[in-house]
Every structure is written in C-alpha cells, then in structure tokens.
Amino acid sequence: MTDGVPQVTWAPSELELARRQHRRKASGRSVLIAIVSTILFVGVIALVLINTPGWESVKATFFDLSVAKESLPAVLQGLWLNIRVLFFATIGVAVLGTGLAVIRSLRGPVWFPLRALATIYTDLFRGVPVLIVLFLVGFGIPALEIFPRLPAGVWGGIAITLCYSAYVAEVLRAGMEAVHPSQRIAARSLGLTHAETLRVVVIPQGLRKVIPPLMNDFVSMQKDVGLISVLGAVDAVRAAQIEVAQSFNFTPYVVAALLFVALSFPVIRVTDHISARMARREQSGGTV
C-alpha cells in the first residue's frame, strides 16, 4: 500500500522538546502551589477551631482517642452487618431496578397493566422517605405473621432495596432512552428480536451513559444502610449508640462516621476515574 512512499521516522524537534520542558516545569509549579495553599487553608481552619471558646469540651466529648479505641471493635462488628446488607441489597437493586426499567420501556397495549404498575411503583418509592419505608416494612410486614421470624437486618435490606430500585430504574430508563432510535432500527433490521435488541444493543449502551449517576446512587445507598439501626439491628450506627450510652461520650459516632466514609471512599474515587475516562473517550472522537 505504501509502495513508493519514502519511510519517514520521527524524532521530536528542538521546538517540541522545549515545549515539553516548559509544560513539565509548569505542572511541577502547579503541584507546589496546590500543596502550599492546602496547608495554609487547613491551618487557618484548625487555628480558628482551636481558639473557639468551647473547643476543649467539644474535643473531650467528640474526639476522645481512648473512647475511640474502646468502641472500635463493637462499631466494626456492626459495620460488618451493614456491609452484608449492602451486598445483598445491591444485588436486589440491580435485578429489580433493571426489571422495572425494562418493563417501563415495553411498547404495546398488552403491557399496559405491567407498565402502569411499574410507573406507580417508581413514583411511590421515590416519593416516600426511606425512614418511613423502613418502618412500614420492618414493623408492618412481620406483624402480618405470614413470614417466619427474620432478623431486623433482613427487613432493613428489603426496605432499602425497594427504595433504591425505584431510583435506579429511573436512571437506567433514562439511559436506555438516550440511545438513539436508529440503533434499534439497525438491530431490528438485522433480524434481532425486540428482547435481543434490548439486551445486546440498547442496555449496554444505555448503561454506559449512566454509570456515573448509578455509582452515585450506590454511594448514597452505602450510607443509607446505616438507617437499618432504627429497626433495632445492631449495625455500626446502633453499636455506636450503645457505646455512647455507656461512655457518656459522643466519640463512637465519629468513629462510625469515619468508617462509613472509609467504606465509600474507594467507590467515589473509582466513579471520578470512570467519569473522567468516559469524558476523554467521548472527546477523542471529534472536536473539543
């Protein structure tokens, strides 16, 4: 194909090398500026805080290191329950949320009742506060006495699943609708059925578009599993509460808060990373 075209090898020119060096220096400088300004910023806030009149008593009741150490094992054990609930709730939300999204995207009069049901469901569960759903599910359903006695964590997980499925379904549906109709036509023209078209063409593309908001919902769910404590499940929040009652010191709450932050931190960073990568990929195709 390249017959007759002389092969050219490329080595960066003097000009390009100078430009690169300038960019390197400039980026080194900006890192330095960022570090210095951060230290200054944190320093000022700390100074102000320490000089407030009530600081000593706040420090003693919220940031007592020995209380923190003592309460850590109990709170950690509680967090393990949160993590298990989160695990099963995530699976539940993925299944139920996708199901709802697919049902809401079905066309044709046959599906009207199902579609209406799914719409009512998502409207309802996005409107009701999570806490109320927790109470209704956690205290109401067991009172029916048709299910065997289950631990409070199970009911809590079910309630969280019910709430978050509604949110996730809407996000997924928005993603599916953002896939251009010509993609469906192209798939159907190849002879793919409606279901295959959804599974192979629409859902994968729709999902990609909504990964950041989905991850955001996941982060939000990570902290909302702490609400199952209102049902009496001994999770991290409830464990902290027990410790607080024993030590007359609020430090265990701070411990629990830090643990929840630590739990969500990796996901938050991964979300940022994925969003940035998607933005780059989108841009590389065309103009900026």
């Binding site: 010509s182 993609q183 036509i185 192209a186 798939a187 159907r188 023209s189 190849l190 002879g191 063409v201």
Partner: peptide, 15 residues
C-alpha cells in the same frame, strides 16, 4: 428482516 440486508445513510454501527 434477517433475509434482507440494509445499509442506512447514517451507518448505524453499534459504537
């Protein structure tokens, strides 16, 4: 449809 091949103006490949 599977017996007919179609090409559109806008390619419509699956990205």
């Amino acid at each position: 449809r599977a017996r007919i091949g179609v090409v559109f103006q806008q390619f419509n490949l699956f990205p």
